[in-house]
Design a binder for these strands. Structure first.
Lengths: 153, 153
DNA sequence: TATAAAACCTCTAGTAGCTAGAGGTTCAAG
DNA sequence: CTTGAACCTCTAGCTACTAGAGGTTTTATA
């Protein structure tokens, strides 16, 4: 079933990954180099499509290139050696957990930020004083409702 | 009160901004160039401290450099020309609103992601099948519970 | 006043994860 | 056989810094 080889453009279409991005992934060793035509153009088989789909999906879920590297090598090992399948799955699980923690952390930081922005903006339109708080809040950390790092003095 | 000039290290301490970052902000024109000693070292006055505090605070709230550039020029205008204070505040308000939208967008994307990661991880430990879903979900978008861009075909 | 250490200086390159453009070649359809 | 789309490599650019090399200035102490 590997008869039909794909050009890079066709692979891009099938995976939803952009052409320069595919070349980039090859350049950093994330996607293996495909065969070439006599003229030097890339021709991909089905295994490339599967791997690239994996990569794009993981990227879309926010995994970093390093993590994907590791996930891919787990993938390859688990495909070839049955004995270590359990370890593989545990490691994959760990990577996903780490990533989940990062995501949760980002969410909580952004939520605090959102609240702060909202209260800054709300102050522009509430009641008698028509003065906008945005500038003064930014100029003076003391006016903040949340703690977020900047503590001058 | 501008008697005591600060070294870059002292300014860093007072603002919570790192020394190389201060030099970086100067290099991109975000913070104005300070006076120098005969030996060529930077010496900052109080206005620099105020401006840098503003910058650091805005960065910490996630504003981009471009937005801060604009906010700073609004700041300067509003300090010099009273007539345009209203416009200034409106524009500051707009920038904050735009930023709020971005933040809200990021939060909703990350939340979907978090749910997906959680369900992937949960599948590793629930019930009879001890097989971890992490790898197979990544390999096959169809197994996803959420829509997030990658739609192969 | 001499010395030594801490802080400062400039410059270049690196980080993540691509994207854009220049300038040239190959492929596939008609 | 021609044409135009798709391909090729290479370099540079994006955000917002950070790290390091190699050298100079300042400041505190003896």
């Amino acid at each position: 079933m590997n008869f039909r080889l794909m050009s890079i453009g066709q692979l891009a279409q099938k995976t939803g990954c952009k052409v320069p991005t595919i070349r980039y992934y090859e350049s950093i060793g994330l996607l293996s180099a495909p065969s070439r035509t006599e003229g030097g153009q890339r021709r991909y088989g089905d295994s490339h499509r599967v791997n690239l789909t994996f990569i794009c999906h993981a990227r879309d879920l926010g995994f970093g290139i390093k993590s994907i590297h590791e996930l891919l090598s787990l993938h390859d090992h688990s495909a070839t050696e049955d004995g270590i399948k359990d370890k593989t799955l545990h490691r994959a699980d760990d990577i996903a957990r780490e990533h989940l923690l990062e995501v949760e952390h980002k969410i909580s930081k952004l939520s605090a930020l959102r609240d702060e922005l909202r209260s800054m903006i709300d102050a522009c339109h509430s009641g008698e004083t028509r003065s906008c708080q945005v500038m003064s809040v930014l100029a003076d950390h003391q006016l903040c409702h949340h703690r977020h790092g900047v503590e001058p003095q």
